[in-house]
Simulated assay, not measured.
Amino acid sequence: MRTTLLTLTAALAALAAAPSARAADPDNAVVVPQVDRRDIKLPKFPSNDFEVGLFGGVYSTQNFGSSVAGGLRLAYHINEDFFVEGSAGRTKVSDEAFRRILPGGIFTGNTETLIYSNLNVGMNVLPGEVFFGTNRAMPSQVFVLAGGGTTRFNGQRMQTFDLGVGVKVYVADWFAVRVDMRDNIYTLDLLGKRDSTHNVELNAGLSYLF
């Protein structure tokens, strides 16, 4: 009996010493890690904080009807919610309706060039998606903006305030399609009286983000 106990004790001691021996001898380890250190280059994701684009649409000059307008815009996105944007455009305004009543019309020619430029602060309010069919979706963003600038028309230069709303659809991370509607408010004196006019603009454009 005593001999059996001594044999069991020796066996347990041998088992307890086996892991220490394997740990001390890497050649006897079950798995020897062989990991080479790699140089990792962090990807450079574009911030796309700047936006530049062209637009075209319709500019409705109060008392003179609507005409085709076009221009360009440049924006800087401060964060996901706010951005600042400068835009400039031009259109041709006709006094054809007045020539039917007043001999000679109002302008020296049949048309006058109207040039406008604004600086706006915008806020993104409704992020979402636009679906094309059942398998295609593109990110979209509804925004509002407000600001001021100048309008030059028929020899007059007027301080302008504008309010607008629009939607932008991202075709890619760097490319977007947008539609804007704005009300350009300024005082105009062409009919012998200074009146505050509301001149609605509806345009669509393409934007490149970088």
Rank of each mutant, 00 (worst) to 15 (best):
N79E: 04
D36I: 05
T108S: 12
V35Y: 11
S87L: 04
K168T: 07
N154F: 04
T150H: 09
S66G: 13
F55L: 12
F210V: 07
T197Y: 07
N184P: 14
F45Y: 11
M181R: 07
V58Y: 10
F64K: 02
V165S: 00
V144S: 01
F107D: 13
A172V: 10
A146D: 03
N199V: 01
V52S: 11
L126H: 08
R22K: 13
G65T: 04
A18T: 01
A172I: 08
A75I: 07
S47K: 07
V167T: 04
L5R: 09
V177D: 03
N63P: 01
R100W: 03
R178N: 12
Y170W: 14
L42I: 05
L74T: 11
L119E: 02
L190A: 10
G56F: 10
R194Q: 09
F132L: 13
Q34R: 13
A10K: 05
F153W: 15
D39L: 11
A88R: 09
R100F: 03
G56Y: 03
G128S: 13
K41A: 12
Y116Q: 06
L72K: 10
D95M: 06
D173H: 12
S47L: 14
Q159H: 12
F132A: 08
V93N: 01
A75R: 11
F131H: 11
L191C: 10
L74D: 00
R182W: 11
R73E: 06
P103A: 10
V84C: 00
D195P: 08
A11G: 02
R100T: 08
P26M: 06
Y208M: 14
E129F: 09
F210G: 12
L190V: 06
V52M: 14
M181Y: 11
A18M: 14
P19W: 07
R182T: 03
T4L: 15
N79P: 08
V165C: 02
V93D: 09
Y208D: 00
Q141G: 08
Q34L: 12
P103N: 13
A176V: 05
A29S: 07
R100S: 10
T151P: 14
L191D: 09
Q141D: 13
Q141T: 07
A18G: 01
V58G: 05
N203I: 03
F210P: 10
E80D: 10
T150N: 13
R157F: 05
K44S: 14
G164S: 03
F83D: 00
Y208S: 10
A172P: 02
S94T: 05
L206C: 11
T151K: 12
F55C: 09
E80G: 03
S117R: 06
E129P: 02
N203P: 03
R178H: 15
N203L: 01
F50Y: 15
R38C: 04
S60Q: 05
Y208F: 15
G192Q: 01
E85T: 02
R182E: 09
R100K: 13
S140E: 02
L163Y: 04
